[in-house]
Nucleic acid binder design. Structure first.
Length: 269
DNA sequence: CTGAGATCCTGTCTGC
DNA sequence: TGCAGACAGGATCTCA
């Protein structure tokens, strides 16, 4: 489900509900997610206070004094907020229980994961992590360096999480449209000027999506389970055969590394 | 080191 | 309607 803006949106929605509160208990209904969930370690946080909640890449990190909970939503994960006596839904795999209310973790495809880590710096999934696209470290000279000698397409490069985090399949296509660069263009052929455009396009696309509360997803639901986030109008993603808003050319769909990729053959070169 | 491909899993949509 | 097959927001791992 989520790319960076959706994770940011979910994190922002959850924060005022749980920060400063003591967690009563963590219940794991199904530990078989992307990685086996360590129930015992998570339950060791019972009656501990939540100090803060942050997004790191596409992970949500919940900070306690004794350790931290790390949540990844995979392709189809979501959180919802319910009264404590709520009967878990199909595919609710975990419950973070507070005094009156609970946060439920729901993930039909189980590509997501929930971890406990004492120390984030040594947490294995954060070892080889790329730049935060909204930070100042991600700039045109950083991108230019990354692209040198890379045979791979520019789209694959910006989706490579060990280089840049949080740019998923939808926003990759959208950013490249905005920067007027063809997704299949070899990374090594990207010019310095194109790096300037692409960095600014990625930042702007992500910021816009965050502003609108996470875009992308057909079945993206609010925390209370209702649907109704405003859906951002994509320029190219999912618009195969429809007219480009800039030039009326029909949007093309190609497959790059097994993922659907959309672009305008006139606007992007 | 780089990059291609397989893989984890369920739900939804399309076409016959 | 039923059913088979394609496809979907991610990211790690294996292998060449």
């Amino acid at each position: 489900m989520p790319e960076l803006p959706e994770v940011e949106t979910i994190k922002n929605a959850v924060a005022p509900l749980i920060v400063g509160q003591d967690i009563v208990r963590v219940n794991i209904f199904n530990p078989n997610l992307r990685w086996q969930v360590d129930k015992k370690k998570l339950q060791s946080l019972s009656s501990e206070k939540i100090l803060s909640i942050q997004r790191k890449a596409k992970y949500i990190v919940i900070y306690f004094e004794k350790g931290h909970i790390i949540i990844h939503l995979g392709m189809s994960g979501n959180l919802h907020y319910q009264k404590n006596d709520f009967t878990p839904l199909r595919h609710d795999h975990a419950q973070f229980k507070f005094k009156k209310y609970s946060i439920f973790y729901n993930d039909p495809r189980r590509f997501g994961s929930i971890h406990f880590a004492k120390d984030l710096d040594s947490f294995f999934l954060f070892k080889n992590i790329g730049l935060e696209p909204l930070s100042d470290l991600f700039n045109d000279s950083a991108l230019f360096k990354m692209t040198r000698n890379r045979k791979t397409s520019i789209k694959q490069l910006i989706m490579n999480g060990s280089l840049i985090v949080g740019v998923g399949n939808i926003y990759a296509s959208e950013s490249l449209f905005r920067a007027k660069i063809r997704p299949s263009k070899p990374a090594k052929n990207i010019t310095k000027k194109e790096c300037v455009y692409l960095v600014s396009a990625i930042k702007q696309v992500l910021k816009d999506a965050i502003k609108f509360g996470g875009s992308s997803i057909r079945d993206f639901k609010q925390l209370d389970g209702s649907s109704g986030y405003f859906k951002i109008k994509h320029n190219v993603y999912g618009r195969e055969g429809e007219k480009c808003y800039q030039c009326d050319t029909k949007i093309k769909k190609i497959i790059i590394s097994g993922r659907s990729t959309f672009y305008c053959s006139k606007c992007q070169s």
